[in-house]
Design a protein around this nucleic acid. Structure first.
Lengths: 229, 229
DNA sequence: TCAAAAGTGTTAAGTTTACACCCATGA
DNA sequence: TCATGGGTGTAAACTTAACACTTTTGA
């Protein structure tokens, strides 16, 4: 078929991924040494070009699975960045995504080819192009999203303790929370199930393990329940 | 400069605009008869291609000002839509924006070349491609946005009455609100200023006119005030 | 036995909801 | 004078915020 649109320009379109992980009480972001000109060797977000017959989402999934060895990563589109001079080398439009992964899982294996490193979100190195703007937006969006949708569980292992979960929220919000109020709210959620098991990693007494029941959450949602933290 | 990226495909990228307006107590969306193949003559959102050296935002502004004759329209990016088959004619990525305009203003002049018509958001015709999905997202986003940011004033004339404003919220949320509670909340906002003037269009008694003071809003925001309705 | 983290309830303040009547005016 | 839409206050229910001590256990 001939192009109906041929008088219009075509653009390279890339995806950039903001991969968040939680470890040692800290919220971390995955940042790469850039392998490609321009600005080779400087820090940037992991990304890649959208290929023929691939949606932006599919491209981001491809980048994420190449980078981490994982499938089915939780991911949301943030925004398209399209300032003409954003990449000084050549015009590239870029769609930013954020992704949440559980750093504890076995299958996770950050591929060395990306030269990726985890940085605490408060101690990020200088990033190229408009990537700092992407980070700001991702953090803002993440902070909002975790308080309205049960996505925080993507950053936690399948079984987690309430102190762990509270520390995670504190890392995301960068603000201390009241333990009793936090537990009260969380424990009122019908889809958080307390297991008959304790985690003894971080205290002698041990903390009870909990798990997130997706099905129960969907049931609660249908009955008008609104997640809010 | 040579392309660093030449082994990757390039794409047409368009913008699609969800233009909302408020009239006769109804929230309306601007929809066009499509001038272009494929699907010429069917209903679609107003849009256009991103040109060389133009950001997506600039392209949307261009489309909006061609369509309405207005400058400085309030506009936010919604999302990039990129399913490979979304446009059956040819692969086109599209960035959706929503825009809010005051239908009462003098300068507004919907250009006939677009064959644009206003439809109540509950009575939209069938739209092509993934435009219905864009509408759903725009409505969901708008509903959320008006409750957290003072953007609703973009849909109102510079001077408006509280009954007008309440009707607008009711149209957006598609739900009746309690008059006294609404007024209490709204009147507690320091940046809503009551004028010594009444609008007598809609009642014998007349309703006081108010106006939104942007500067005052910014001052209040800096002092930690959070808009919420 | 003690250090370290887990776990537990109550009260006061603030917010949200529900609700019904009077007012001003022009026809 | 009356029909129409504009304007006003309060009390009960609910939500949020603040706050300190006991429990368990391994070293």
């Amino acid at each position: 078929m001939d192009s109906f649109y041929k008088e219009h320009p075509r653009f390279f379109v890339s995806v950039d991924c903001l991969v968040f992980g939680f470890a040692n009480g800290q919220l971390n972001l995955l940042v790469c040494k850039r392998k490609m000109e321009p600005a080779q060797g400087t820090w940037s977000l992991p990304g890649g070009f959208i290929e023929q017959d691939e949606s932006a989402e599919a491209a981001a999934e491809r980048v994420l699975s190449n980078l981490t060895g994982l499938e089915d990563i939780y991911m949301e589109q943030l925004k398209m960045f399209s300032q003409p001079k954003r990449d000084p080398g050549e015009r590239v439009l870029s769609v930013a995504f954020y992704a949440l992964i559980d750093l504890g899982q076995e299958a996770l294996e950050i591929k060395p080819s990306y030269q990726a490193h985890w940085f605490n979100i408060n101690e990020l190195p200088d990033l190229i192009f408009d990537h700092p703007e992407m980070v700001d937006l991702a953090l803002k969006t993440l902070r909002h999203a975790v308080s309205t949708k049960p996505i925080v569980f993507n950053l936690l292992p399948e079984k987690f303790t309430l102190p762990q979960m509270q520390t995670l929220f504190e890392a995301i919000y960068d603000q201390a929370l009241d333990k009793r109020n936090f537990r009260k709210k969380v424990q009122s959620m019908p889809f958080l199930v307390k297991l008959n098991e304790k985690d003894k990693q971080s205290s002698r007494k041990g903390a009870f393990l909990y798990t997130f029941d997706q099905k129960e959450y969907e049931r609660a949602s249908q009955n008008g329940f609104c997640f809010s933290l």
